[in-house]
Amino acid sequence: MKNKEKYLKVPPALYMMLALMLIYGILVDNYFTAQNMVNIASQAAPLLVIACGQTLIVLLQGTDLSLGSIVSVVSVLWIVLLNLGVPMWLSMIVVLLSSAVFGLINGVIVAKGMLPAFIVTLGTQNIFKSVALLLCNSQTLYFSHSIFRTIAKEKLLGMPYSVWIAILCFIITWIVLRKTTFGMKITGLGGNSEALTLAGASISRNTIKAFVYAGVMAGIGGLLLCCRIESGNPNSGNGLEFNAIAAVLLGGTSMREGRGGVGGTIFGVLFMQVLKSGLTQVGLSSIYQNAIIGIVVLAAIIFDAFLKKQQEM
């Protein structure tokens, strides 16, 4: 029965998050208020959606470094379209379609060229980012519309709509991974890709699908982020891809064997956001934040790897 415990275990990210909250709770007045928790949740919403997509890619033993750039390009594109007078519903569809295309580009190059995902997406990261910068001529674009406020601020059952949208994306990803034939193939890709070939499932087609899925999730994340900052900023997605990878890894998804799933990712995301939001609340200037987040995340990943090693002994 020891084994059973092993795979039902809550990822250490949860404990680390609770520890962080305790520290912040001591440092910051009124940290444990409902208002603050709602704040953290609404800030975490875009990251959660992006990390859901990233989970699929990590499961098949890759990483998508271009997701942050997709977020940037999507948010700029959306505002550009709105400024051009495109109706809201159409602009959203166009934006999500384009994010699917970005994912498709990644997927096709990775799967058909049989190239390492990280180098391909490192390349496309720069390509998409350039597209974003070219679209807005390196400026932040503005547009005002009530829907932004509705999604980002207005609440349903105590939580902003953006949080509910993120939770919806999370549930969908969970169902996709656990309950659909496609999800089985993603787990298979990471665990034993030869089994796919032998069972007659296409490795490349499923890889491409996963990248498209991740692209669309980044698109949705971009829209949510855009609603929150009410502008289109070509740098808004910077670093989000790394935060997503960190969240996925800390959530217990492994780059080997296809272990893990989106269930753990949510803990990783919360850990990342608690860490990030807290730094601002402590009153640390944004200059210090990147280095601290990077160090804490690397330390957490090392700690996590260390724990796993202990368990295997």
Partner: peptide, 26 residues
Amino acid sequence: LVGVIKLPSFVATYGMNMVASGLAMI
């Protein structure tokens, strides 16, 4: 990070990239 902790090198050094550029800002 790569040799002892056995992280995939692109993850470890991508993280280090964040840390170093963050430190440069500080």
